[in-house]
């Protein structure tokens, strides 16, 4: 991923401005993938106060499902759908079997999901091998578009950015403007009181967990169309989504968007200007945010 990005940006030496814009766009599209992964994580955490360490595994599994379905059918949308539904159902199953009982014990949930991620990583390695694969994108989308000041830019990246923005607004609308969103928000603020008003909070929990997992699965297909899918990526995406969620503030969709954008930009810019220590910079961003604002950029001060 990183090498490819680097060469890509190196190729265009049409001027400082162009390069700057190009890195910015690359950073934003990378951030779009991070946002798709992290929004599920932040939603689950915001409502249930548990963090699922198997989120990166959901991402990679979604990517692999998408890869197989697209290879067999040639339909990208079908692949994305299959990945979302498949990973969402698996998330539901995991929630019902392993997490529901320990809802109040966040540490134990974190550890159990960590164990699940160990198993998932190993089984995926057995099923798909160690070589990198990528979800095939339709021929019609494998073109570049002319952008002012920037020159040619891959269409698929712009589409991905739009998809992430669309998902972001969809989530925001759902959480802030619909009745179901109001239930979710009530559950975030006080799950016991919400249950007392006659809402079956357990169903809400299960649905959000499944939905968050489905988002990760979808992100796997979206991200897997741009970046390679291979063992180790699950850990990478888990860590990056943790960084995004921590920096942005847990439970906040807007925070996840800002965090993802920042992480994407910082990692791309440092990759170009300080290639050796790009990862260090990205994580240092989180450390700095936490040192200044422990609850994250958009987090509520109570946590």
């Amino acid at each position: 991923m990183s090498k490819h990005e680097f060469q890509y940006s190196k190729r265009c030496k049409a001027g400082e401005m162009t390069q700057f814009l190009l890195i910015t766009f690359n950073g934003l599209t990378l951030g779009a993938v991070y946002f798709l992964v992290a929004s599920g994580l932040t939603l689950i955490f915001g409502l249930m106060r548990v963090i699922t360490m198997a989120h990166g595994t959901s991402y990679l599994l979604g990517g692999y499902i998408g890869y197989v379905v697209v290879r067999e059918t040639g339909n990208w949308i079908l692949g994305a759908l299959a990945a979302s539904v498949g990973v969402g159902l698996l998330g539901l199953l995991i929630h019902q079997l392993l997490i529901r009982k320990f809802q109040d014990d966040d540490m134990r949930v974190a550890l159990i999901t960590l164990g699940l991620s160990l198993i998932g990583t190993d089984l995926m390695l057995a099923a798909f091998g160690g070589t990198a694969t990528q979800v095939a994108i339709p021929k019609a989308l494998q073109i570049g578009v002319e952008l002012p000041l920037l020159g040619t830019y891959p269409l698929i990246r712009i589409l991905l950015l739009l998809i992430a923005i669309g998902v972001g607004f969809g989530l925001w609308f759902f959480v802030n403007k619909t009745r179901y969103g109001a239930v979710v928000r009530a559950g975030v603020d006080d799950s016991q009181m919400t249950a007392a008003t006659g809402i079956n909070i357990k169903v809400v929990f299960a649905a959000i967990f499944a939905f968050g997992s489905a988002l990760a699965g979808f992100a796997g297909v979206a991200g897997g169309s741009l970046f390679p899918l291979m063992p180790g990526q699950d850990g990478t995406y888990l860590l990056f989504s943790l960084v995004v969620v921590i920096a942005g503030g847990m439970g906040s969709i807007a925070g996840a968007a800002i965090g993802a954008g920042l992480v994407g930009l910082v990692s791309q810019f440092s990759l170009v200007y300080f290639p050796t220590y790009a990862l260090v910079f990205t994580f240092a961003l989180m450390v700095i945010v936490l040192a200044v604002r422990p609850q994250g950029l958009m987090g509520k001060a109570t946590v």
Partner: peptide
């Protein structure tokens, strides 16, 4: 000094992330 500002699950995550900073430094320096 950094991690102690956070608690519980946040502490777990920040120590994990700091570990990754060290890892990426170790594998590149």
């Amino acid at each position: 000094l950094v991690a102690v500002r956070t608690k519980a699950i946040y502490f777990l995550m920040i120590t994990l992330a700091i570990g990754q900073v060290v890892y990426s430094f170790a594998s590149q320096s």
